[in-house]
């Protein structure tokens, strides 16, 4: 792995956590609007960002989530699976917007893993859990599409890892 990839991803993970801190009050509850989930779109611009995103999620859950034990397994697992699906489908889908749309749908769909987590932890009904978490994820990532698009115009994500 290139040093640049290593350091870039480390810093992206730190940024993920720094941003989740600023908006902490609306994260970690049942309908969550985790703004840093927008960072999931980074993988569209360069697939190497998968490391930074996963480590960001991992550290945020390990040190800042009261549900650490559950979130580490399910939250990190959900991120890895979704990012891999997005990277795999990216080969067949052309265009940034289409890929970001697929990414948004994939992440919302895989929230069923979080619903399983909530069911295990709180005995919450599975479908209700899936619905509430998927809505939160979908809204944030849909909003994230134009946001990340505009930021990319200014900073060009591709060349940093």
């Amino acid at each position: 792995m290139k040093v640049k990839t290593l350091v870039g991803n480390g810093i992206v993970a730190a940024l993920y956590i720094a941003v989740s801190f600023v908006i902490q009050p609306i994260a970690y509850i049942n309908i969550q609007f985790r703004i840093p989930e927008m960072f999931n779109h980074l993988v569209i611009f360069n697939k190497k960002y998968i490391f930074g995103i996963v480590i960001g999620v991992f550290l945020a859950n390990l040190f800042f989530s009261p549900m650490a034990a559950y979130d580490l397994v399910f939250g990190v697992g959900q991120s890895i699976i979704s990012l891999l699906i997005t990277i795999a489908t990216g080969k067949f889908i052309k265009g940034l917007w289409a890929r970001m749309a697929v990414n948004t749908v994939v992440f919302s769909f895989t929230m069923f893993l979080i619903a399983i987590e909530l069911h295990l932890a709180f005995n919450l009904p599975f479908l209700l859990g899936w619905l509430t978490t998927a809505i939160g994820e979908f809204v944030v990532m849909a909003i994230g599409m134009p946001v990340m698009y505009v930021i990319n115009k200014r900073v060009d994500f591709k060349r940093f890892v």
Binding site: M1, L6, N9, A14, I17, F51, I55
Partner: peptide
């Protein structure tokens, strides 16, 4: 890449306070 993961984690931990301040 286990070693690389660990190093990325250390880098992230080192930069969280810095980036929070910057935010």
């Amino acid at each position: 890449p286990v070693h690389e993961f660990a190093l990325m984690m250390s880098i992230a931990l080192r930069f969280i306070p810095t980036l929070l301040e910057e935010t």
